[in-house]
Amino acid sequence: MRLPVDRGPLSTEVRKVLQAEPGSARAADLVPVAAEALRTTDDLLADDDVQLTLFVLYELHHRGFDDVDDRWEWDTGVLAARGLLERALESTLRERVPVPDAVPARRRAVADALFAMTAPRPGPSVARYVWRHAEREQLVELLVQRSIYQLKEADPHTWAIPRLTGAAKAALVEIQADEYGGGRADRMHSALFARTMRGLGLDDTYGRYVDAVPAVTLASLNTMSMFGLQRRLRGAITGHLAAFEMTSSLPNRMYGDGFRRLGADLDTTWYFDEHVEADAVHEQIAGRDLAGGLAEQEPQLVADILFGAAACLYLDDLVGTHMLGAWERGESSLRAPVTAAAEGAA
């Protein structure tokens, strides 16, 4: 992947810095530019300049960029700017996201709280829309929006593995091993998602559609990267995974049926069908052994476990509201149109 197109003064400055030689003094200038971006933003989660910058800075830790020297990953100037932005992201989420309190640090109580937070709700959702109403262009948009995360599915949560111990660690490894195909590269969930993209005539190259996705979609991924990268937030990334898994099986059945309604073949819907079955397993392990287990090992993390879960749901709602709103107005949910090859399966 190459650096995405910048979206404002901060991401422009970041591009200039990252295209220079590592160690360049220019990196120190990022902090005041980042501070100014935070001072002037109306809504951090919908701010394209800030969210794209965070995406770029986190991507240095994921797969990097073809046109950026890998040594920038641990440059202190760049890390200082990232720290400023992620402190703002974390405090924004902590202010806005409602978290249940008075949940005891017991396995069953934490699992019950997570299942209650994620209980199926009636009403509009992207999954129901795709199931019943979406047209082919909207399926394409859904995959483009999801591709930013799903082509590296599971990676941010994997960062938590060395920070956990005992039952919680074993549970996370059990889930992630399945996410990564149980030893078969072609069954990795990211590989199945790439297959679905190809089925709809999309380019499955990692990062291909970053320029097309809006700030809220990037904010959702940035939150995962922030939770995953910081040991301090190991409770939050654990809760995030639990909420993610607990809100997956039932929606994925609707996605699969929606794609089939428009003629997608089994190869294209494999990703969704796989998640119906896999995540019914993962949600039990994530809620009970992982989140519940961690709560018993480290009772002080209960609030963060629930915060991570609530943040996952909050951002999922923001992205869903954005997409449904655009579709109901007859508009695209993307920043720029994406062309899919017409010969795609659906």
């Binding site: 059990e174 399945d178 149980g182 039932l250 079955e277 397993v281 392990i285």
Partner: peptide, 22 residues
């Protein structure tokens, strides 16, 4: 397809014998 599987206990899964969260 996986090392750990979930078997339906409520009787309403659409992918029995496996659980689909129903």
């Amino acid at each position: 397809h996986r090392a750990t599987v979930a078997l339906c206990r409520c009787g309403s899964s659409a992918i029995k014998p496996y659980c689909d969260g129903t």
